[in-house]
């Protein structure tokens, strides 16, 4: 089986893929560079050859279903976890052997951390500030995450959302170049999520590089400059929220209820001229086309000429959700097939 080969631990110093020198990564403006990353837990391969590049100053999101390997990947990048094989450079260094200087340049929010309940917000932020060579101002950092009113409150008395904001403050107080946020809003109510989003958005103005993991589509869409969809331990698709999965060039759907007087021949003509496909089901016309303007122009002209409307008219591009489900659905099915194979 393939898995057995892939899971053989690569001896340290073994000739692997030629690593780029730190200088080149730094000069190339790459904060994170991952090539062929693999991680096995026993015989289970959680990360199966993942490639990822995050440029400096970028907010990148790893989006994927639970168990896709997002957290494993991020923890390898953070230096918390060993890898089976692959080449990883984070801020020009291999996180396998983190140094204090390297740690000082990185801030992170782990998936679950519950700070000592007895210490106050102010004490904790000041405590962490002391670990770093050139920290941010403590009060300013608390202000940034909106916890000024809770400065004297003990960590044990904060709500879930407030505790998470405290975690973000602790990640930022060292003034890091690169911030890892592992599922920063899981378990939040909608309002708390919005607040967290606007806070993460301010990291953009501080020109931090951010790598965020999430299984919320809207979160990735709202925050990320670039989204990498992780399915089954690999990057299944990559792009900006607007272009992911060919979303920008995918055919649009133009839909409306067919007016009585509209001759089917007219519709055929319009569809043919815009190279679209036409379906009419129960009086609802659906035109799929890469050229929505070419469809809408003649149709609207016709409606104006006949003094009527196109009731329920809508133009729809595939939503991020459509694209995401198409990407994860296909691979998810393949994964179940593989699991079945493995279990034999």
């Amino acid at each position: 089986m393939v898995i057995d080969d892939a899971c053989t631990e690569q001896p340290a110093g073994a000739p692997g893929p030629a690593p780029d020198g730190p200088a080149r990564d730094e000069a190339g403006g790459q904060a994170i560079r991952v090539r062929g990353l693999r991680k096995c837990y026993g015989r289970v391969e959680a990360v199966r050859g993942l490639d990822l590049t995050v440029r400096r100053g970028e907010i990148a999101a790893l989006l994927g279903p639970n168990g896709a390997g997002k957290t494993t990947t991020v923890e390898i990048l953070e230096g918390h976890r060993s890898r089976t094989s692959g080449d990883v450079q984070v801020l020009g260094a291999d996180p396998r052997r983190p140094t204090r200087e390297w740690r000082a340049r990185i801030g992170l929010v782990l998936q679950s951390t519950q700070m000592p309940a007895e210490l106050t917000v102010g004490e904790l932020v000041a405590r962490f500030a002391a670990f770093y060579p050139s920290p941010r101002d403590v009060d300013e950092t608390i202000e940034l995450v909106g916890l000024t009113a809770k400065r004297r409150a003990r960590a044990g008395r904060l709500s879930g959302g407030q505790q998470r904001r405290l975690d973000v403050a602790l990640a930022l107080v060292g003034d890091p170049e690169l911030v890892f946020l592992d599922e920063p809003t899981t378990g939040f109510d909608p309002q708390a999520r919005r607040q967290a989003w606007s806070m993460i958005d301010t990291l953009r103005t501080l020109s931090k590089t951010v790598l965020l993991t999430t299984h919320y589509l809207d979160e990735a869409e709202a925050l990320a400059d670039r989204i990498a969809v992780v399915v089954d331990g690999r990057i299944a698709a990559e792009g900006t929220p607007a272009t992911l999965g060919g979303r920008d060039s995918a055919p649009c759907e133009v839909r409306f209820c067919r007016p009585e007087r509209l001759d089917p021949a007219v519709l055929d003509l319009v569809a043919a001229s815009a190279e679209g496909s036409l379906t009419v089901v129960g009086g609802v016309v659906t035109l799929r086309t890469a050229d929505p303007a070419g469809v809408l122009g003649p149709l609207l002209d016709w409606a104006r000429a006949h003094g009527t409307e196109l009731p329920g008219l809508e133009v729809r591009r595939p939503s991020l959700e459509d694209v995401y489900l198409a990407i994860t659905g296909g691979l998810g099915a393949r994964r179940s097939a593989r699991r079945l194979e493995d279990s034999r």
């Binding site: 740690r103 000082a104 992170l108 782990l110 951390t113 519950q114 000592p116 670990f131 602790l170 060292g174």
Partner: peptide, 17 residues
Amino acid sequence: QDRERGVLKRLRSTPLP
């Protein structure tokens, strides 16, 4: 408690020796 609540792991990723 600090280990199980992730505090030690979090401290480990700071430059605190």
